[in-house]
Amino acid sequence: MFFQLLFSFISPTISSRCCGTYKQLTGAKQCDWDSRVVSTVHALIVGSFCLYILAYDDAVNLDPIWGDPFQVKMNVAITCGYLVYDLLLFARYWKEMRDPYMVCHHFAVIYAYGYVLNRGVLPYFANFRLISELSTPFVNLRWFFDAVGLPRSSQPVLINGLAMAVVFFIVRIAVIPSYYSQVFATFGTEGYIRLGIGPQVAWIVSCVILDILNVFWMYKIAAGFYRVVTKGKPGGKPKRNHAE
């Protein structure tokens, strides 16, 4: 309800007052704008809470499978609430916001986090996955720059593009070896066996799906940044249009 309120009332009101470009956008663009405001707010809340838990929640860090999940469940519940809101938004505005990859992402996350909320299992690993949300504000800022008409060769866009690529790589790609090494370290332990087949499958399958999507998105981000940087260099191939 909070995220829907933010989308329907708070974002349109503040955006129309603070940014003249917002009023000039089409209805579809305004819808996308408001959804990205909500996405950014969610990412900042969940990402900050995630770092706090990783730093100070000793129970979760000492027992990654069965540690006290109270704070993690609260953070996961916020994320699941956002994902449900976002899926309803996709259903309502599918023509404007068509993104099958994101729908797959949402269902995979909800499927896995359902076990965290219902049984309180895997709190450390559930919270660790939420680190990826720290890259979302940079992704959305790139879209906002496009919406207000800033050239992709301008300094703010290039700085944000570099930051987006670096942060996305750090929180979604570079952590993959460390994450899976900790996953493999739990195999065969008493805590892992107590999980049962359902949580085990949900945990591993959802992680694999999410990381395949992350690698795919990392490739698109790196390729897009490379095109923008090299387009203005001598010998660079000129693009026929501005669609990227």
Rank of each mutant, 00 (worst) to 15 (best):
Q4M: 05
Q4D: 14
Q4K: 12
L5R: 09
L5I: 05
L6G: 03
S8G: 01
F9C: 11
I10F: 11
I10R: 02
S11Y: 02
P12W: 02
S15D: 13
C18W: 12
C19M: 08
C19Y: 13
Y22T: 09
Y22A: 04
K23A: 15
K23C: 12
K23T: 15
K23M: 14
L25W: 07
A28G: 07
C31R: 07
D32I: 03
R36V: 00
R36H: 10
V38C: 02
T40L: 04
A43Q: 00
L44Q: 03
L44E: 03
G47Q: 00
I53P: 00
Y56N: 13
D57Q: 05
A59W: 03
V60A: 02
L62Q: 15
D63P: 07
G67N: 11
D68P: 02
P69H: 02
P69T: 03
Q71E: 04
Q71K: 06
K73E: 12
N75V: 12
A77E: 04
I78K: 08
C80G: 03
D86G: 08
A91M: 14
R92M: 10
R92E: 13
Y93W: 09
Y93T: 03
K95C: 06
K95L: 10
E96S: 15
D99R: 08
D99V: 06
P100N: 11
M102E: 03
V103L: 13
H105V: 05
H105L: 05
H105C: 06
H106F: 10
F107R: 01
A108H: 13
I110Y: 09
I110C: 12
Y111R: 11
G114S: 07
Y115E: 05
V116M: 02
L117R: 07
N118M: 14
N118P: 00
V121S: 01
V121K: 03
L122S: 02
P123N: 10
A126Q: 07
A126L: 06
N127A: 09
F128L: 09
F128N: 00
F128I: 00
F128Y: 10
R129N: 04
S132Y: 06
L134M: 15
S135M: 01
V139H: 00
F145H: 10
G149W: 10
S153K: 11
S154N: 10
Q155N: 08
N160W: 08
N160L: 08
L162C: 05
L162T: 11
A163M: 13
M164E: 02
V166G: 06
V166D: 05
I170A: 11
R172T: 04
A174W: 13
P177W: 11
Y179F: 15
S181E: 14
A185V: 10
T186V: 01
T186H: 00
T189G: 14
E190M: 02
G191L: 04
Y192Q: 07
I193T: 13
I193F: 06
G196R: 06
I197Y: 08
G198N: 10
G198M: 10
Q200A: 13
A202F: 03
A202K: 04
W203Q: 01
I204C: 12
I204Y: 11
V205F: 15
L213V: 09
L213C: 03
N214S: 05
V215C: 11
Y219K: 11
I221W: 01
I221Y: 01
A223H: 08
A223T: 13
Y226Q: 06
R227A: 12
R227E: 14
V229G: 03
K231E: 14
K233G: 02
K233D: 01
G235H: 06
K237Y: 08
K237T: 15
H242G: 14
A243H: 09
